[in-house]
Write a protein that binds this DNA or RNA. Structure first.
Lengths: 202, 202
DNA sequence: CGCGACGTTGATTTGCCTCAACGATTGTGG
DNA sequence: CCACAATCGTTGAGGCAAATCAACGTCGCG
């Protein structure tokens, strides 16, 4: 069935990290559930408890925080083969301070807390796998944080264009601005400036 | 000996996370090494490969990045019972882009890459332990990142005072400013402003 | 068709930086 | 142990990157 077909993508993803036994593959098939989120649908809303650890098969989710002034700050876009959850809320069953929603119709494979914990117990290899996933996420977040505090908005935009060229035509400028930490107006000015200064030093 | 005495602190730290068997405790004693770093001494210098994953027993380390203009940006202070490493450089044996040095004479227990990897192989429980450590670090970093992009310098300073009151008298304002992402001059003005507006709304 | 999101542009404001100067504290070598 | 240098914290004047507020044309969609 369709569901099994999708799970192959995840099994393949794990396989590229660390080979799995048949039994471990079986566990993945049992514990991850296929699900579709529609464009604009919330996956997690600020104040609720985050129930799922999500692997994106197709589509695009965004994780973001809304500040007191009502402005969005996007922590990450999760597209094909990427992971997303509010990790603090998920593991500690706390109220989330973050939101996750779908920018496109999005197919995912998701696992719930109890299932993930039992997965760790039944197959400790997943402790290692999720250790590595978290380490990788940590490195990326650290990079992103350093960028946001040490380089100008213009350079952040340039580097966004280099790193995520495929997202440029897929995501609106409003969202990109909220990801870069600037206003949409200012992003517009930056793009304008760069169009006039074509290849101004790479 | 002294060395064994220090390792007890680490064993105790692990014990509070997940109980260890005698064998696992033995592995920790074998693989972690005691070491003293002197004030101002570098633990890791930008361009080198980070060789150690560090647990601070006593003292204070800082991890920071130097940007093109030569300004420091402090990612974290690591004090008693805290961990620090340039995780990307450490695991992937890449040249570090970060620096780590000692703000005080600092006693640590450190483990090298090959030893940590063999620890994971000999005792998979450490995959879980370091998964959890990384998850915790990830949550904190995410919080910090959100703060730095969504609230003013004044509020960041206030929240620093609340979260790390013990660091206030221990660390110079130059360092605190580099941690908050502002100039020392501006930090001075903020403090001045707050002294005049005593309990201005918490 | 009409409405709301989007992208653009202009005028003005502001949070924080830069540079410069100064006294107070720390640390260091002779 | 003192003298001198270096670092620290503070304050002032001026500047700049990015935000804010407002207006307007365009497009996709119900």
């Amino acid at each position: 069935m369709v569901k099994n077909h999708k799970v192959e993508i995840l099994l393949n993803y794990f396989e590229n990290l660390i080979p799995l036994t048949k039994e471990e593959q079986q566990l993945v098939k049992q514990k991850f559930q296929y699900r579709l989120y529609r464009r604009r649908q919330y996956v997690l809303q600020d104040g609720d408890i985050c129930k799922q650890y999500i692997f994106v098969v197709k589509g695009c989710l965004r994780m973001f925080k809304v500040d007191e002034q009502g402005n969005d700050h996007i922590l990450k876009f999760a597209t094909e083969n990427d992971w997303v959850t509010d990790i603090d809320s998920f593991y500690n069953e706390k109220k989330a301070t973050l939101n996750i929603d779908a920018l496109e119709n999005t197919e995912v494979l998701q696992i719930e807390r109890e299932e993930l914990i039992s997965l760790y117990l039944e197959a400790p290899k997943f402790d290692r796998i999720f250790r590595i996933l978290t380490e990788n996420g940590f490195c990326k977040l650290q990079q992103r944080h350093l960028q946001s505090i040490s380089v100008s908005a213009e350079e952040r935009y340039k580097s966004f264009v280099e790193i995520y060229p495929h997202l440029l035509n897929r995501i609106s400028q409003v969202q990109i601005a909220a990801f870069l930490g600037i206003t949409p107006e200012f992003l517009s000015r930056l793009r304008n400036r760069q169009a006039k200064n074509p290849l101004a030093k790479s």
